[in-house]
Write a protein that binds this DNA or RNA. Structure first.
Length: 105
DNA sequence: TATCTGACTTTGG
DNA sequence: CCCAAAGCCAGAT
């Protein structure tokens, strides 16, 4: 499953459910998050590329804060959407543009 | 062995 | 449109 996360190409993101599915366990979205939280290889496993289904980040991001994550993704060319609508405001209210940056295997 | 909890997701009110 | 509850699977206690 860590292999799956590492396989996420630069400039793209995947949802927990998606990673779970690719890992061979479509119903293990929660476990994916749990495993990533354990993050045995910081700096190697791009946890910041794994987001909620709506493109928002997990509450307890462990890379240095939501801003850090947004910076990392923007750095990779991931498109962000400003908190324009009342959907899940996630980190700073900014969400990943899933329509354009969602990882396609 | 039983019970609880969780970086999730989907559906009902 | 927003809030709450249920379902899911695998650890942890």
């Amino acid at each position: 499953m860590y292999a799956v996360v590492r396989r996420i190409p630069r400039g793209s993101v995947a949802t927990y459910g998606q990673v779970a599915a690719l890992a061979g366990a479509p119903r293990n979205a929660r476990f994916v998050g749990f495993a990533l939280h354990a993050n045995p290889e910081p700096g190697v496993i791009p946890c910041h590329r794994v987001v909620f289904r709506d493109g928002s980040l997990a509450p307890g991001f462990a890379f240095g804060g939501p801003e850090r994550q947004r910076a990392l993704l923007e750095e990779e060319g991931v498109a962000f959407v400003p908190p324009v609508d009342g959907a899940n405001a996630g980190a700073d209210g900014w969400r990943v543009d899933m329509d354009r940056c969602r990882w396609r295997a």
